[in-house]
């Protein structure tokens, strides 16, 4: 899966904005939005929030977890625990990136947040690599991956799954009789 497709999914998350225009309720296929009144916060999907922001029609209110103190706590916890800790949003990385790139003037301490989220991401990816390594060296057949986000899975998907398949082919060819014509590639 392309990272941009994960980002596409993240853009469906809801975020609060303060519009500076007024508009009646909109009846979208995926649900109703609005009504929009200047100064009154309203929930919209991120794709719409960013579009309005780019046209300077609203102010984005960052989600609650996008806060230096909360993220610092998370970072400490993530470094202390051996397992993956629960993340505040299944798309935390994508949302941080999208909101900070397009609406950084509405988010207090944007730079600090960027660094913190990157730190959390790096810690988690390091853990992910370690567990992928032990998964392979112990030849496990099942793993539980709670609290992993789609973007994190996506960073190792192609490489990890292909290597597992490759090893499976090699191994099944080692055992005579179990090798079928199933894997003969052109």
């Amino acid at each position: 899966m392309d990272p941009s497709e994960v980002e596409f999914l993240a853009e469906k998350e809801m975020v609060k904005i303060i519009p500076n225009f007024s508009l009646d309720k909109i009846y979208l296929i995926g649900g109703d939005l609005g009504p929009f009144n200047p100064g009154l916060p309203v929930d919209v999907p991120v794709w719409l929030a960013l579009n309005l922001k780019q046209r300077q029609k609203c102010r984005v209110i960052p989600p609650e977890w996008m806060d230096v103190e909360k993220l610092e706590e998370m970072r400490e916890l993530e470094r202390k625990e051996e397992a993956f800790t629960p993340v505040p949003s299944p798309y935390y990385m994508e949302l941080t990136k999208l909101l900070l790139n397009h609406a950084s003037d509405n988010i207090p301490k944007a730079d600090e947040i960027r660094t913190l989220v990157k730190d959390i991401w790096d810690t988690r990816i390091a853990k992910l690599r370690l567990s992928a390594d032990s998964f392979i060296s112990q030849q496990e057949a099942h793993a539980k991956l709670d609290n992993l986000t789609l973007m994190e899975i996506n960073t190792i998907r192609a490489f990890f799954l292909d290597s597992l398949n490759c090893m499976y082919k090699l191994r099944s060819n080692l055992q005579p009789g179990s090798a079928t014509g199933q894997f003969t590639d052109f």
């Binding site: 998907r157 597992l164 499976y168 199933q182 052109f186």
Partner: peptide, 29 residues
């Protein structure tokens, strides 16, 4: 080539399932 059904996949559970049999990877498991 046939589709390789033995590929690994990532999944999220929507309805609780019990007793899913996991086959061993090697003979000594």
């Amino acid at each position: 080539p046939e589709p390789c059904l033995d590929s690994f996949v990532f999944l999220r559970v929507k309805e609780k399932q019990e007793n899913i049999l996991i086959e061993p990877e090697t003979d000594d498991q």
